[in-house]
């Protein structure tokens, strides 16, 4: 007896529940910071739900604070979200049997958490009697993730409106990005990219529209690409789970 779409949907939701712990602080922080930049509750929560990309949203809002041109914000958003191309490549085969409206809708939900919880179950179900309904698993995970994220955005925007300036909400993106760096710096090439990007962007502080940031990131990427991606000693000694989640996602 194959699993029904309803059961698939609920299983997808259940798989997403543990990610609440990761979504909540990040989503609330993103909302709180965004509302202090745009000064409008509906715009802040709307942006969070429509972009559905927390890091890109925070970087874009930092750039908005510096009055950077729109093109810079769009470029930053594109580069930060490039990993979704990878997710799309991996997940596309599981949407192959679906109509265009389904593909268009499901693609919107292709975020870190939803990809992470569904790629393995979808792969396991491919070729089994459950295969035709497996997109409902992804849908359940995706809908739950959107609900969490948008809810985080509402709570964040409400908080951001009442938190006094002495709490330095503009430091929130920095903490989020330090957290992202702490999970991403694993191999030699990661470190090379980070060091080069940091040095160049600091050297170029004061350029208009935060242009130093873009030049620094570009130099970092190039330096990282030409550095051998050898895993450093300490990374090898860590538990095996490290290399497993390395393959999964880098967020």
């Amino acid at each position: 007896m194959p699993i029904t779409p309803r059961e698939q949907f609920l299983a997808g939701m259940r798989a997403q529940v543990p990610n609440f712990a990761g979504s909540f602080p990040f989503g609330v922080a993103a909302g709180a910071f965004t509302v202090t930049v745009v000064n409008n509750f509906w715009l802040s929560t709307g942006m969070q739900a429509l972009m559905f990309a927390g890091r890109a949203q925070m970087v874009a809002m930092q750039l908005e604070k510096e009055h950077a041109p729109l093109m810079f914000m769009l470029l930053a958003c594109l580069v930060i979200n490039l990993r979704c191309l990878m997710y799309g490549t991996a997940i596309a085969q599981h949407f192959r049997h679906l109509s265009w409206p389904w593909k268009i809708g499901l693609s919107f939900m292709l975020a870190d958490f939803t990809y992470a919880v569904s790629i393995k179950p979808l792969g396991d179900m491919a070729g089994t009697p459950d295969a035709p309904t497996r997109h409902f698993f992804y849908l359940g995970a995706g809908v739950f993730n959107i609900a969490m994220w948008s809810g985080d955005g509402i709570i964040g925007a409400l908080l951001g409106n009442v938190i006094p300036p002495s709490w330095n909400l503009d430091f929130v993106p920095t903490v989020s990005f330090i957290f992202a760096l702490s999970t991403a710096l694993r191999e030699q090439d990661d470190w090379a990219a980070a060091v080069a990007a940091g040095v160049v962007s600091v050297a170029l502080v004061g350029l208009p529209w935060q242009a130093g940031l873009f030049i620094g990131a570009a130099v970092g990427l190039v330096v990282g690409m030409v550095t051998k991606p050898r895993v450093r000693e300490y990374a090898v000694k860590r538990p095996a789970s490290r290399s497993a989640d390395n393959k999964e996602i880098t967020s």
């Binding site: 890091r55 970087v59 930053a76 330090i178 760096l181 991403a184 990219a193 060091v195 990007a197 620094g216």
Partner: peptide, 11 residues
Amino acid sequence: LTVPAVFMAIV
């Protein structure tokens, strides 16, 4: 590599 490069350049 976009993660270490982009976010270090910002942070």
